[in-house]
Amino acid sequence: MRSAWWDRALGAVLIAAALAFIASANSLQVPFQYEPLGPKAFPILLGVILAVCGGVLVLRPDSVTWFHDRAAAWRVLAGAVILCLYAALFEPLGFIASTALMVTAMARLFGLGVVPAALYGVVLGLAGYYGVGEGMGLNLPDGRLFGG
């Protein structure tokens, strides 16, 4: 999957983002201002430069190779899903349970067997909570489901 369209697409996205950025800066309501430049000018300047850069990227793209094999793409996708779930479950399940699940799933992706992966997950969950959390006085969630 080698194509110059990725750079072109990114260039287009950057132009759109730059325009939105400029519009947002331009619509700021400034009640009072003691200096000549104010809060709008610099962001607008940045937006203009970014739009120009995006334009150059559209016109002169590099060719980007995305994935070499399908398995790699699936691993990255699975990793992304695990990260999202970990973030979503972090507070509801609490640190120990959510970490145990994340570590198990992530280690499985790297080819570790079910039992060692789960064991590693429980160990990291407990060690993180009691070692790093309690030990260093950091704030980690206990989990709402377990009456925390």
Partner: peptide, 23 residues
């Protein structure tokens, strides 16, 4: 990496969450 990456991910979550406790 099966041991390394999960550890790294857990540490990043601990670090970021402990700042403000915000999901």
């Amino acid at each position: 990496r099966a041991y390394l990456v999960p550890l790294m991910v857990a540490l990043t979550f601990i670090g970021v969450f402990s700042l403000y406790g915000a999901t």
